[in-house]
Amino acid sequence: MISNGLDEDGYIAREGSPDRVPAEFAPVVDAARERIATAFGPARLHSAYLYGSIPRGTAIPGVSDLDLLLALHREPTPDDHAEADALEATLDSAFPQIKGVGVLLFGTDTLLSELERYDLGWFVACLCTPLLGEDLAEQLPRYRPTSLLARETNGDLALALPRWRERLAAATPNSAAPDAIAPDADLAALSRAVSRRLVRTGFTLVMPRWNGWTSDLTASAEAFAVHYPDRAEQMRLAAAVARTPTIDRAVLAVLIDDLAPWLAAEYTAVHGEKAPRP
């Protein structure tokens, strides 16, 4: 492998591996594999994947979460989602070394579709580590850090802004209820989601010029800073909040009302808008 997350041919290298799972998290991964197989079975489950810090080898006990993607033979049903919710709760309560579990469900037709080729397909092929079943990456192309990939992964940031503003407003006391205080957990969750999305979008904005791939938040912010020095400190702030969520509404206002709309407009100007989904 050469630098910037590319292989020797200049394609984005798969970033995770079973060999990189830290020893403290090996029992978690083993339990996830066993319980996924039991809960979904071969009739429903095509394949299962890890993604995030655990397969990258950067997970921190008691801080990192367990991220899973399940590819089903058909599109997921409400019963499938209920099963996934139960799986999340079971794993989260059983292992103190993880702080939360997230399970994504998709049908294989969606993951392999032309529409998702440069979004979910790329995600599976480059950011997911096989855990169970036949690897869908074998049916997907290799990917370079192109403007097309940038557009299809993060070219829809503008769609998230109204939801973020609504969540921040709902978490902020108003004159009708001046004594109301939003739960800190709500603000912390919002700050984590917003900041991680902004850092990833900021990085993919400059990804073709940087000519590589990274999931490291600090490296992502610094790659962005080279090309947008006027916004560098805001992006570094986003990276810091992504690592350590905040309940400071003033910080959230900077990210949601200033950095985010500028970034959405700049992204569209540079890469265009993501193909609309149904």
Rank of each mutant, 00 (worst) to 15 (best):
W164R: 02
A170Q: 13
Y143W: 05
A158C: 01
A170L: 11
T153F: 04
L140G: 05
N154S: 14
E138L: 11
E152C: 09
L136C: 00
A170T: 05
A171W: 00
C128V: 00
N174I: 09
L140Y: 04
Y143P: 10
E138R: 14
T172K: 08
L168C: 10
T129V: 08
A137E: 02
R142M: 09
P141Y: 05
Y143H: 07
E152K: 06
R167M: 13
A170N: 14
A160V: 06
T172V: 13
R151Q: 15
E166K: 14
S147T: 14
Q139H: 10
R163I: 07
L157G: 05
L127C: 10
E138H: 11
P130M: 11
E138S: 15
L132K: 07
D156F: 08
Y143L: 08
P130S: 07
L168Q: 03
P141T: 09
P141F: 02
N174K: 04
A169K: 12
N154K: 14
R163Q: 09
P141G: 05
E166Q: 15
D156S: 13
D156L: 05
L132V: 14
E138D: 12
L136N: 10
A160E: 09
R142Y: 05
A137L: 00
E166D: 13
A137I: 05
L149C: 06
E152T: 01
P162K: 12
G133T: 04
A158W: 12
E134A: 13
D156T: 04
P162N: 11
R163D: 07
R163W: 13
